[in-house]
């Protein structure tokens, strides 16, 4: 286990974490404000990736592709709200899960019908096809650095808005105690739409960023959706800070688990057994982390509503 590999895998974990945060932050706020489980959030991420990929292949302009993705995602997010979500605000979680599951089935299939089942080409622009030399001799692909940096900048902006502006304060208040905020005269449903739109745009942006390093194909949103749920449940529902914490925890657990768990197990088990168990355990790592966190703190790492219990 060389230290340079550790650094590279650590960066990969951070990179996965930033992508997850962009998706999970919207998901957690949407849940916090109206208690809505929106499985269709992964669909919006997919829409972002498809919008970016098809724009980039047609126009050749990466800037245009990255700019269009959040807009497309925002429109689809709001459209889904008008068509489906708004009827679910007052329903129970089972109804929300099922109806948004139906949305996933529909949109995944629609994308398959329109763009075909194969992955859409979304090559890296030549300007980003270089790698950064890390101290110690390792290299790190530029595009992944772009993901990390732009993700972190967005996260900083998001926290700035949430914690330094009046609008952000209202959003945080809504995620903590929507009933009280409604009493104070804030239109919760309008606020919800704003947050849903912003969350969708962030998820679409994440899709555009992730496109070149993952396969842009139907159903690509599903795995990200499930990971994001692991993130927000681990971090604490409704809390953006929790989502940030959970994202990096899940991102690091996944990448470090995949690259080092087998080697670690070799220290304990015979090599053949380690080779068999290692990958299995690594792919389960994040769910184990979530289960452990929930067993110790059922409300998640950062709990907004502990006082209400």
């Amino acid at each position: 286990m060389e230290p340079t590999l550790l650094v590279v895998q650590f960066l990969n974990g951070i990179q996965l974490g930033t992508l997850l945060f962009l998706v999970a932050s919207g998901l957690t706020l949407v849940f916090g404000i109206l208690d809505v489980i929106n499985l269709a959030h992964g669909v919006v991420y997919m829409v972002g990736a498809y919008a970016a990929a098809s724009t980039f292949v047609r126009s050749g302009s990466l800037a245009l592709a990255i700019a269009i993705a959040p807009v497309a995602a925002l429109l689809v997010g709001l459209l889904l709200d008008r068509l489906v979500l708004r009827f679910l605000y007052d329903r129970n979680h089972l109804d929300q899960v099922l109806a948004t599951f139906g949305v996933i089935l529909f949109v995944d299939e629609a994308v398959r019908a329109i763009f075909g089942p194969a992955a859409l080409p979304y090559p890296l622009p030549p300007a980003f096809e270089w790698s950064l030399e890390l101290p110690g001799g390792a290299t790190y692909p530029a595009w992944r650095l772009v993901i990390i940096v732009s993700g972190l900048v967005l996260a900083a902006i998001l926290f700035g808005i949430l914690h330094r502006t009046r609008a952000g304060m209202v959003v945080r208040a809504a995620a903590t105690d929507p009933g009280m905020l409604a009493m104070l005269g804030v239109d919760i449903r309008r606020l919800f739409l704003v947050v849903l739109g912003a969350g969708s745009a962030l998820a679409g942006f994440a899709g555009a960023l992730a496109g070149p390093i993952v396969a842009v194909q139907p159903g690509m949103g599903d795995s990200v959706l499930i990971l994001s749920f692991v993130v927000i449940v681990t971090g604490g529902l409704g809390s953006v800070q929790g989502a940030l914490l959970g994202s990096f925890l899940v991102g690091l657990a996944d990448t470090l688990g995949r690259s080092f768990l087998t080697d670690l197990l070799r220290l304990l088990l015979p090599p053949a057994a380690a080779n068999e168990v290692g990958p299995a355990l690594a792919s389960m790592a994040i769910y184990l982390v979530m289960a452990i966190v929930l067993l110790i703190r059922p409300q998640g790492l950062v709990s907004l509503r502990r006082a209400a219990r």
Binding site: L88, G102, L105, F106, V107, R112, A113
Partner: peptide, 16 residues
């Protein structure tokens, strides 16, 4: 082959 195009909206309707 795209039967989910019909089943997805049907599921939404059943729930709603």
């Amino acid at each position: 082959t795209h039967w989910a195009l019909l089943f997805g909206p049907f599921l939404v309707l059943v729930v709603l």
